[in-house]
Amino acid sequence: MTHLADLQAWLQAQLTGKATEQQPSVVIEGLPQIIKSNGVPPEQRLRVYTSGYYLRLLECLQGDFPVLRAFLSDEVFGIFARGYIYSVGSKSYSLLDFSKNFPAFLLQMTPPAQTEAEWQRYRFPYELACLERLMIEVATDRGFESRDPAQKRPIGNIWMGLGDNLGVEVPKCLRLLEASFDLCAFMDAPQPIAERQLPVLQKTYLTLSRRNYRLFKTNLEHWQYALLNYLQSGCTLHETLEKIQSTGIKSAGELKADLLFFLPYAEEQHLLRLT
């Protein structure tokens, strides 16, 4: 008698295109377990489920990367999507997680670039995919919407010996992306996506977050990006400032002056919260 777990493993192997040889030998003959219904033979019924599984995952990728799909064309995007579905497959109970490794898959499938122009042409779809994937994570992770408004703290107190009592919290939905192109300008361009030109190389530091349940993305200066990055990793504000100063991005005086303007802005934009 075939165990249910073995049949489930066999059916999963059929749906995902995995070799049945990797499954227990007892379920290699699992096809006879499928009941013929309304004159439809088991082989055809299995193909219906297999096609449905593939189409659902393809639909998921198309929905998660609409801009990338329009930029590459349906044909080119479909080639990468099929490769991802059959080589990586779904390994989570939630379809929200399915496309998580798609940007890395694109990069892995990229051939070696022979010229700088080729490198840009190959690199841009990967970074565009990274941006669209991060947008999904920002939309589904926790923000500050349910939190009580933070009590406003005098920013000047940081430099008056009270900084040790000042805490800074960043939202869980905050995402940061160091890019080789101005992705914000590309995403916000007025032309149809298929008609937009490949952006020129331009180092950008992109932040994505959510305010009042609305996603927004902004290009930051290098030191502002570093500030949020260190805070997100668990550093205190003073540890963060010391790290930034040690890198030479900003001098101590410049950093203190600029921070007086940036912290209120960042708090207003829900990039951080002073506590």
Results as ranks from 00 to 15, higher is better:
residue 212 N to W: 11
residue 13 A to P: 04
residue 47 R to E: 15
residue 19 A to S: 15
residue 132 E to H: 06
residue 72 L to F: 06
residue 50 T to W: 01
residue 50 T to R: 01
residue 265 Y to F: 05
residue 3 H to K: 08
residue 267 E to Q: 14
residue 92 S to E: 11
residue 235 C to I: 10
residue 95 L to C: 10
residue 160 M to R: 10
residue 166 L to T: 13
residue 65 F to Y: 08
residue 147 R to I: 05
residue 31 L to W: 05
residue 235 C to T: 15
residue 242 E to R: 08
residue 229 N to C: 12
residue 161 G to R: 01
residue 2 T to R: 10
residue 4 L to T: 08
residue 67 V to S: 02
residue 269 Q to S: 10
residue 45 R to K: 02
residue 126 Y to G: 05
residue 94 S to I: 11
residue 99 S to L: 01
residue 175 R to M: 06
residue 187 M to F: 15
residue 198 L to G: 00
residue 23 Q to T: 15
residue 219 N to L: 13
residue 232 Q to A: 10
residue 272 L to H: 07
residue 137 E to Q: 07
residue 176 L to R: 09
residue 74 D to Q: 08
residue 85 I to L: 09
residue 40 V to G: 00
residue 40 V to R: 00
residue 58 L to K: 08
residue 25 S to R: 15
residue 165 N to M: 07
residue 64 D to N: 06
residue 90 S to N: 10
residue 83 G to L: 05
residue 75 E to C: 02
residue 133 R to Y: 02
residue 135 M to G: 04
residue 166 L to F: 14
residue 73 S to D: 14
residue 203 K to E: 08
residue 184 C to L: 15
residue 90 S to K: 09
residue 49 Y to Q: 00
residue 269 Q to G: 02
residue 174 L to K: 07
residue 95 L to M: 14
residue 189 A to V: 04
residue 35 I to R: 15
residue 181 F to P: 12
residue 273 R to H: 09
residue 83 G to F: 11
residue 121 R to W: 12
residue 14 Q to T: 02
residue 24 P to V: 12
residue 18 K to R: 09
residue 163 G to S: 13
residue 5 A to L: 10
residue 189 A to T: 00
residue 207 T to K: 03
residue 179 A to S: 14
residue 234 G to N: 11
residue 177 L to K: 04
residue 274 L to M: 15
residue 179 A to I: 02
residue 267 E to N: 09
residue 239 E to H: 09
residue 265 Y to K: 07
residue 58 L to M: 13
residue 20 T to R: 03
residue 53 Y to E: 00
residue 275 T to G: 06
residue 95 L to H: 06
residue 99 S to E: 04
residue 36 K to R: 05
residue 262 F to C: 06
residue 109 M to H: 08
residue 196 R to G: 12
residue 153 R to P: 00
residue 59 E to W: 06
residue 45 R to N: 02
residue 72 L to H: 01
residue 139 A to P: 00
residue 14 Q to L: 03
residue 198 L to C: 00
residue 236 T to R: 05
residue 58 L to E: 09
residue 169 E to L: 07
residue 178 E to L: 07
residue 7 L to P: 01
residue 275 T to V: 13
residue 198 L to R: 00
residue 117 A to E: 07
residue 92 S to T: 07
residue 261 F to Y: 12
residue 122 Y to C: 01
residue 79 I to A: 08
residue 153 R to L: 06
residue 48 V to R: 06
residue 24 P to M: 12
residue 24 P to T: 05
residue 43 E to P: 00
residue 248 G to M: 02
residue 165 N to H: 14
residue 34 I to R: 06
residue 43 E to W: 01
residue 249 I to H: 01
residue 163 G to R: 05
residue 227 L to I: 04
residue 82 R to C: 15
residue 76 V to S: 02
residue 215 L to I: 15
residue 64 D to W: 00
residue 220 L to P: 14
residue 249 I to Q: 05
residue 125 P to Y: 08
residue 144 F to C: 00
residue 204 T to R: 07
residue 232 Q to E: 04
residue 84 Y to N: 06
residue 113 A to N: 10
residue 187 M to K: 11
residue 205 Y to I: 08
residue 254 E to S: 15
residue 88 V to R: 11
residue 6 D to K: 07
residue 85 I to G: 04
